[in-house]
Design a protein around this nucleic acid. Sequence first.
DNA 1: CCTGGAGTTGTCCTA
DNA 2: TTAGGACAACTCCAG
Length: 489
Amino acid sequence: MIAQAAAGVAAGGVALVWFRQDLRLADNPALVAAVASGLPVVPAFVLAEGDGSRPWGGASRWWLDKSLRSLGASLGDLGSRLVLRRGDPTLQILSLARQVGAAKVFWNRIYDAPGIARDTALKSALREDGIEVQSFNAGLLDEPWTVKTGVGGDFKVFTPYWRAARALLKGVKPQAAPNALVSPVAWPESEDLDAWGLHPRAPDWSGGFEAWRPGEGGAETRVDHFLETGLDGYGVRRDLPGGEAFSRLSPHLHWGEIGPRQVWRQSHAYVENRPDLASDLGKFLSELGWREFNHHLLFHNPTLPTENFRRNFDRFPWRNDPAGLEAWRRGRTGYPIVDAGMRELWATGFMHNRVRMVVASFLIKHLLIDWREGEAWFWDTLLDADLANNVANWQWSAGCGADAAPFFRIFNPVTQGEKFDGEGVYVRRWVPELARLPNAVLHSPWMASEPVLDRAGVRLGLDYPRPIVDHAMARQQALEAFKGLKVLD
DNA sequence: CCTGGAGTTGTCCTA
DNA sequence: TTAGGACAACTCCAG
C-alpha cells in the first residue's frame, strides 16, 4: 500500500478514470480528458454496493461480467489495465484516489437521483483533498437540463421534446479512442472479477444468452449489421417480432459500450448515399429520441422509479394476484403472443418491443396488477434493463406516465398476434407446443375445434393453459377501474 | 394571458 | 370486407 501510494505521488500524480455506464474507449470524454492531462492513467470500475442506487438485476450482472472482461482486454491492448473495486463507490473512489496519488479524477455522468447525489458529494470530497474533478456527457445526445420549452420548462410530451432536442444538435462528432495510455509506475491491487460471481452459477440459467456479445466490439458489430440488414424498411418491419429488423443495441447503449453520438453519426453516414432510407432513419433515430426523453423525464422527476407520474393513479385499485403474476412471469397466461414474449425474455434476456407493449398492457389492464411488479420483473430479467427506459416505458404503458397511452387503449392479445405475427413465426418459436396449430387459431387456441386441436397434438389445459382471463370481460373491468380516476390534483 | 390544436405504437361497433 | 368514428378527459405547448 505504502509503496504503491509513493509510486503514484513520485510520478507527479495520476489521472483516475472512473468507468460506470460508459464501458468503452471510443467517444469517451472522461478518458480523453485523462489522456490529455498527460498524467499516467488509472482506469477503475466499482461494483456499487450500499450507495442507495438500485442493485443490478440478474441479467444485468451477467452482461456486466462480460463487458468488464471486454473493457479490461481492450485496455490491456493499450498497455493499461482495469482496476476493480467493490463497495460504496464514494469510499472506494476516495480511497483509490488517495492510494494512487491521483491529481485528477474524471468520469462521465449518470442521471438518476441517488447517482447524482452520490457523485456530487464525491466531487466535493475529492476537491477538499485538493484533487481536480471533472465530469462529462458520454451517455446522451443532449443533457436533460439543456432541452427547454419556449418558456424554459421541461418537456412532458415526446414530439415537441424531440423536435427541440434535435434542433440543439449541431454537428455530432464522436471522439476517437486513445491510441495508448501511460501506465502508473505501480498498479494498485485489483479485485478478481471471477470472485464477484456476476455470472450465474448453480444453476447457470444464462445458456440462452449466448447470441449476445457484450463489449465495445460487439456493439460496433451490432450497429454495422443493423444498418446493413435492418434499416431498409425499418418503419414497418420493426413491428414484426418474428423478423430481424431491430437493432438490439439497447443493452450496449445501457452499458455505454457504444454511445448515442456514435450511433447518430454512423447511421447518418450510412444513409448519405441512400436517400431512400431517410424516412426509416428518422424512425430509427426517434427510438434514440425516446431513450433521450426517458432520461430527461427521470432527471426532472427523481421519483419516477417508484411513484406514478400522474398522481391521480395513486387511487388505482390494483389487484393482489400472485397466481396471475406468476402465470404472466412464466408465460402461462393462455394467450400465445403474451406467453411467447415472456418466454423469449426468460430465455434470451430480451423481448421484442411490440411484444413488450402487449405483455405490459396484459399485466396492467387484463390482470390489473401494479405496473411496478412488471417493472421489477423486467429489471431482473432484461439484459437491457435501464432505470430511465424501464420505468418511463412501464408508466407509459400503464397510462400514468408522461405522454402516456390513453386509458382506453387496451391491447387485444389475439388481434395483436394476428396483426404482427400473422404467420406465427414468433409464437411457434417460443411456444412450441402450439407449433402445429394452423395460423387461423394459433393466437386463440381456445377457439379451435376438437379435431383441429387433436391434429396439432394440443390438449388445452394440459399441454397449454386455457386463458387465465377472458379478454372482453377483463377489458370491461379495466375500463371501469380507470373511470374511477377522476383528476383532482 | 388566452386559445386551440395536438398528443408513439388501439379496439370495437356500425354503416 | 372495409372505412370511419367513438371511446374522456386532460395536459402540454406554441403562437
